[in-house]
Simulated assay, not measured.
Amino acid sequence: MTSAPWLRRPQPRPNAAVRLVCLPHAGGSPGLYRTWVTLLPPEVELLLVCPPGREDRLDDPLPADLPALVGGLGAALSPLLDRPWAVFGHSMGATVGHELALQLVRQGHRPPVHLFVSAREAPQFHHGGTTHLLDDDALCAELVRLGGTDAALMAMPELRRLVLPAVRGDYRLIETYPARPDGLLPCPVTALVGADDTELTAEEADGWRQWTSGLFQRLTFPGGHFYLSDRPQEVVSAVRRRIAEYTTASL
């Protein structure tokens, strides 16, 4: 069973009860979540999404739009839905994860047991934007402002050449995303936010309540837009507890 090149399995757990699919932010890579494998119990297998344009996919063409991205990922993930699964997406990854779950449910696959949307406004509050049109210096400055990106690294011309195409491409996808999801998910949805995240309001996070027929909860952590990088233990513990609520009841 293969899902390359879209998915990474840092520690295969063929007997796991649940698979947790983690999606990065715009321009991000699977590295955002690699430490999670040591924080999750053996019952949970981590699947890390690697979109085109990063790591060993630098030469892969970037998707034309967000539906194309979701379609490619969905095709790769489908063979791995032979057991319960959950989705965690950060920032742009939350939007991709939501659309991915909706697409797979429409195709007849089992719904996820939980959708975790991190640092992202609900679709009805989608901002759009023109960040993808900035020149390289301004784009790097925006990445540093958001946190999660070292200013010294962004000053290195060779690194810029490697990472900025994927960053710009992802921003183009999310900023031109029409934000018209179709249908409700039947699973619980948890919105996770940083208390000091200037990119998101409580109202925008709570708007995810409208996209599920299941339970909704908002969790707030100390920190800004990349709060999860500073507090991985706390975030993973929260995710574990909510996944366990399902597995204890149903498996």
Rank of each mutant, 00 (worst) to 15 (best):
P63N: 03
P52Y: 11
A68C: 07
T38W: 08
R34F: 05
V70P: 06
A76I: 10
P41L: 02
P61N: 05
Y33G: 03
P63Q: 08
L77H: 05
P67A: 13
E55H: 06
L48C: 15
L69S: 10
P42C: 08
E45K: 07
V70H: 05
L47A: 13
D59E: 13
T35R: 15
D56I: 06
L77V: 03
L46N: 01
W36T: 07
V44S: 03
V49Y: 03
L69A: 08
L39E: 11
P51N: 09
A64G: 13
V37C: 10
E43C: 05
L66W: 01
V70S: 06
L58P: 02
D60F: 09
R54C: 10
P52G: 08
P41E: 03
G72H: 02
G72Q: 06
R54F: 06
E55R: 10
P42V: 03
P61R: 09
G53V: 08
G53I: 08
W36P: 07
R54G: 10
P61T: 05
P51K: 05
L48D: 01
A75M: 01
R57K: 12
L66S: 03
L48M: 15
G71A: 14
P42M: 10
V49Q: 04
A64Y: 03
A75V: 13
L66N: 04
C50E: 15
V37K: 11
L47W: 05
Y33P: 09
L73V: 06
L46S: 06
R34E: 04
A68D: 11
L73E: 01
L62Q: 13
A68E: 14
P67Y: 07
L58E: 09
L39P: 03
L73R: 04
P51W: 10
L66F: 12
R34G: 00
P63E: 11
T35K: 15
